[in-house]
Structure formats: C-alpha cells, structure tokens
Write a protein that binds this DNA or RNA. Structure first.
Lengths: 356, 356
DNA sequence: ATCGATCTCTGCACCGATGCAAACTAGCCG
DNA sequence: CGGCTAGTTTGCATCGGTGCAGAGATCGAT
C-alpha cells in the first residue's frame, strides 16, 4: 500500500493535519516541526494522493484539450505549445481527439461539469456549429479556439482569419497572379473558420481588381493532404486553370503541390501556392511553402492564461482574444532564387514575415 | 453543486447504495427499482463523480502516454492510434511530453506509484538508458515502446529494428548504390534504437559485399529535420559523397532531401534516400519518400492490450512483443516513373510494401 | 411449518486528503 | 497578574462514491 499522510504523521510524531500543513506550506508551522515532517516525507517517500486531494478540494488539477486530430501538424504543434504553457502551473493536460464528430464534441461539453474529470477545457470545435455551442452552458470554464462563435457563452482565442486570408491572397495578386483559386471552403454551418477565410479571399480579390470566379473556390470535406490533391485535380480540369492557389491549411497545400508537380506544372512559375498554419514540414518541402503563420505560442499562452483567469474565479463577460499572425513568404510563391535572396538580404519580407 | 448519488437516492426513494448498484449494473436489483433509479438519474442529470469513485476503488481510469515530442509525426500518429485503442475501454489518456529530458522521464517513472494519477503508463523513453530504466521498480504497470531495454522489469513493444534497417539498406544496395550513408546514429548509452538501426545497416552492407566507411555514418543529436539537413551538408563535403542515404526517421530524410535538392543533386538519380516511420507527409512530398513503415496500429494495439492485461492482474514475467513493419518503396529510391509503374502494376513491391 | 437458497435492499465504514474552528502555548501590554 | 494577540497544533467532519456484510423478503423443497 502507498504511503499516506497518516504514516508520515506517525513517523514524525505529529498529527496528520500538521503534515498537511507542511505539505501545503501553511505559514504557521514551527521551523523545527517543519523540518521533522520534511525528513519523514523524504525518508518514507511520501507523495500526496492527488485523487484524494482533488476530491476534497473539488478540483482535479487537470485541464482537457480537445482537438479534432493530433496527426494534423497544426494541432500537434499547438498541443505541444499548450502543454508547455500548462506545465509550470502544475496542471496536467488530458488530450481528447474528437475527429470532428459532433456527438463526441457535444458529449465533452455536456459532461464537463458532471464527471469532474477536468477543471477547464480548451476546445477546438469542428463538428459543432455556433448555435449548438451556444446552447450548452455549464460551470466549468471553456476557451474556444478557432473562428468566433457569435454571442457564445465562451471565451475565445483566434487570429483574424479574414485579414490573414486577405494577406495571403494579396501577396499572390501582388505577384501578378490573375486567376487565384481557393481550396478548403466549407460552405455549411460548422465551416465557420473556412468561411471567413473565403471572405478574406474575396476581399483581397476585390482590392486587386480581380473578378471572382465561383469555379475557383473548391470546397473540401476535410483538411487532409488527400483532399488538397483531389481539389487540385479538379482545378486543373478547368478550361482556364488557376495560376495561383490559396489553401486553407498546409496539408491541403502539400496535396495540391504534389498534384501540380505530377501534372508537370512548375511551382511557383506556373502556379503559385500559399498554405496556412506554418507547419514545420513546409520549411523543408520542395518547394518550401509560403504560408500564413498563426503565432501558436501566443495562441497557446492566451488560451491558457484566460482559462486560468476563469479558474481563479473571474466571472466577467466572455472575451474575444486575437493572436498575431505573419505571412511567411517562401519558394512556393516567389521561387527559389528570390527566396534565397530574401533570406540573405535583411529584408523582412521573407524570413521574418509580416507581423499583423 | 453537482448532483450526487444521495440526490438521486432521495429522488427515487431508495438508498444511495442501491443507486450505486444500479449505476454499476449489479445484477440483483429488481427491474422496477432499476427503472425508477434510471429515471431519477436521467431527470436529475446525474453523472458519477469519477474522482470519488477512483479514490474508493484505488484506480483512476487514466493511463499516461509519455512521448518525447508530439510535434514529431511518428509520435502524434502513434498517440492518435493509442487513444483510439484506449477509448473503447472507457479509459482516458493523459499525454506527457518529456522532450527526452532524463529528469522528467525519471520523475514520471518514480512518481507513477505514488501520486495515483494514472493506473498505467505507456512510455517511449529517450533520455533514459537501459541501466537507469532497469533500476526503477514499482507497482504501476509500464509498457515501453522502442528498442528493447535488456533485462528490464517492463513489458516492451517494438519492431525488429535491425531487420527493418537491414531491409531499407538492402533495398538501396539492390538499386546498385555503392556508397550508402546513414544519418541518425546516436553512439551513446541512450541511443539504443539508433544503434540497432546502425547494426542493421552494417549487416546489410556486409551482405551486399560493401565495405563500411565510418565517415558515412553521421550521428545526430536529435531526429528533427534541421539535424537531417546538417548531416547531409556534412556528407556532401566528403571527397567521395554518398550515392544513397538511409535516414533513421522521416524528418531527418526530409531535411536531407531538401539539402540535396538545394545543392543540385537529383533524388533518387544521384542520391537515393530512405526514411523511417512512414509519416504521412512522405506520401506527398517531392519526391515521395521511401520509408520503413512500422505498423503503428499494431504497435498501439499490442501496447494497450498488454497494459490492460497487467491492469487486470497478470503478473507474469515481462514480455517482449514484436510488431510487423513494411518497406514502402516510393520515388526517393526508384524514381517517379518506376513508382507510377509499381503503383499501376499489381506488383506488391511499391504500394503494399513487404510485410515482415 | 421449517429450512435453506436466492433475491433485494440497506447501513456503516472507509479511500486520503483538507476546511474549519477550537485548543493550547507563549509573549506582551497595561 | 489578567487579558489579548500571535503563533502553533490538533480533532472532527466531509468530499462522493464503493466494499462488505447483513437484514428482510420470497419461494420452493422437505
């Protein structure tokens, strides 16, 4: 059996309550007593039973992080960043994979108060739409990641997706591209993040004096590489195929580039490509991938800080936090030689991106 | 306050104990009573407090998964597979990132019995060597992933890394490559996995009648893309640079390929490259990446099954389980045209890989 | 009618910690 | 020296379930 607070108390010749006081750094413990208890703790190898502590305290010391899929680089990189933020606060992270399944997402939100497994939730919804999310109240704090869910009861962290998409498409237009396609729209209720990117895309087209062509906006059912490949195949079948593609994440872009190269198109000379998320793989791919880079560390820090603010009792109105992003310009839009020049020169355009 | 078993008992007009019996499907409960309790549970929205249950039962219903880094595709893909295996057993997974830090790895193992946060641990060690691991006993079951730690007290799941490495290098030799390099050796105590791959590499060289050249074996301090790039730079500076490279994971390969293409070498015509892990990104990269594909789903299933066997009380000797792997042959070794031919033809070599 | 077996339900203690408030000591002031 | 404050330690109840064992009820067999 494990060592309990009673074993330590007996060993140190004090009451269990005093051991608890020492463990919790209660100030009014005589130095000598504290020392004796500490010695006993060390020699017996006592560690508090967190389950018991949590039962009594009503907190579990764990926060849940729910993401659609860990195998998507954006989410694994973000998860790592969130865990790094949480660790110093001596909380533990439980990661749940929802696969974007609305039932699992709803279950997570509905059970969060009642099963007492975690104190707070950082949630990147995929299958649940704004109206459904808004209808699930509860006492356990939730911070949503991703595009804003209007009027919801939850705190919320995101980047300005409209501006981010716009900056990507403006960049393509500035290179002289005239037929700029978009891959990854999700024109149904839960595709909010995709839809605002489409909005930014349209705004940038308009600003550049380009007329939108509905055939150039290809929806996808998910954000995987295979979907990007399929969408690109479709675009290449058009009578007037695009000379640039804005993909709503880097995996779609990887799939699209693969198809382009397979079909003998050069990237970026024939078709320029921009992705979204700044997955590490895009820094080493051939060509390297120009991409919109949400600042994942800031997103993680904001989400965690806000969640802990709630855990500490803040009951203000839901807040809406915006993290910065940058446009990382690499070979898939400006070509290898210019990319090298941009890296060598101190010009901020390439390596450091444009802070927004 | 949350709904407790007492609230349900009062509402249904039975004792708390009976509610517990209903919740736990104790067979000797009258159908009528059961119905009434169920109704009360539903109408009050009762969910058992898992913290309290776990305190009493002495189990937490959680297993921990400790990996070096989630951002490495192999680990995020494996984590996803493990979570999928665990979910149907109504356990929850806590993921810990160790960053390969020996102190954190040791803390995890040493605290596993005492803090009572998880019932079992699936652990992919990186910073701890065989001797250190072997010296940490404890009651909480542990399943190790990765190369075998000799004589340790823990169960263990891996693929046959020697054979896997050998198959990769044999493949390169069969293509006519004569100077085959290896990137990713870790010639110090905790680099066991890397070392057995080096062993397989040497065995394959010998079998092919090639004499080993120490300069062709480049150690790296980690398995990231940047390390692969640096190692490749080093190899290209040799008087006789390699005509093939076996990389110990796909990230190293991605970095190596990037450098090769940057330096004007063609892959595979000038230098053929094989990776390890079968990360999804290698199926879409340019060129697509030939790689050793450990069967992650089998690894996950074996590890989880073995862990639950221990949780169910099995106290037999530590077991050593071997999962299958396959060699996936793609463009980075046989070129695009042949890869297409292999995919089109029913020949198993390309698409399906070679089961071992 | 008696007995044992089976079914159904319940009370009590307990898992291991902490909140609360009381008890006790010592020191200090007037 | 009484009274008060500050410091130190402690007992008791409690968080919300479940293990254990026993009390009743029911029923068929003898």
């Amino acid at each position: 059996m494990a060592v309990t607070i009673y074993d330590v108390a007996r060993h140190a010749g004090v009451s269990p309550r005093t051991v608890s006081n020492v463990v919790n750094d209660y100030p009014f413990v005589a130095a000598e007593t504290r020392r004796r208890v500490r010695d006993s703790i060390d020699s017996l190898g006592y560690r508090p039973n967190l389950v018991a502590r949590n039962l009594r305290r009503g907190r579990t010391g764990m926060i849940a992080l729910a993401v659609p899929e860990l195998a998507v680089p954006y989410f694994s990189e973000l998860s790592g960043a969130i865990m790094d933020e949480v660790a110093p606060r001596s909380y533990t992270v439980i990661i749940e994979q929802t696969d974007g399944d609305p039932a699992r997402e709803r279950a997570l939100l509905e059970d969060r108060d009642r099963s007492h497994v975690f104190d707070g939730l950082i949630f990147s919804p995929l299958g649940l739409g704004a109206s459904e999310l808004g209808a699930i109240p509860g006492a356990t704090p939730v911070v949503l990641l991703g595009e804003r869910v209007n009027e919801g009861p939850f705190d919320h962290v995101s980047i300005d997706n409209v501006a981010a998409a716009r900056s990507a498409v403006e960049h393509l237009a500035s290179l002289g591209c005239r037929r700029i396609a978009a891959i990854g729209d999700q024109p149904y209720e839960t595709g909010e993040t995709a839809q605002v990117r489409t909005q930014g895309y349209h705004e940038a087209l308009e600003a550049a004096g380009l007329s939108p062509d509905p055939a150039l906006v290809v929806p996808t059912s998910n954000f995987h590489r295979s979907a990007g490949a399929e969408a690109m195949e479709r675009l290449l079948e058009l009578a007037e195929p695009p000379d640039a593609v804005f993909c709503y994440n880097d995996l779609l872009a990887a799939g699209a580039i693969r198809v382009l190269l397979d079909r003998g198109r050069r990237v970026p000379e024939d078709v320029a490509v921009v992705g979204f998320d700044d997955a590490e793989e895009g820094r080493y791919s051939t060509p390297t991938l120009s991409t919109v880079a949400p600042d994942k560390h800031v997103i993680a820090a904001m989400a965690v800080a806000q969640l802990f603010r709630r855990l500490d009792g803040d009951i203000g109105d839901p807040v809406d936090l915006r993290a910065p992003f940058a446009l990382e310009i690499r070979e898939s839009t400006i070509g290898r030689l210019q990319a090298i020049a941009a890296l060598d020169g101190k010009a901020g355009a390439g390596r450091k991106g444009r802070r927004v």
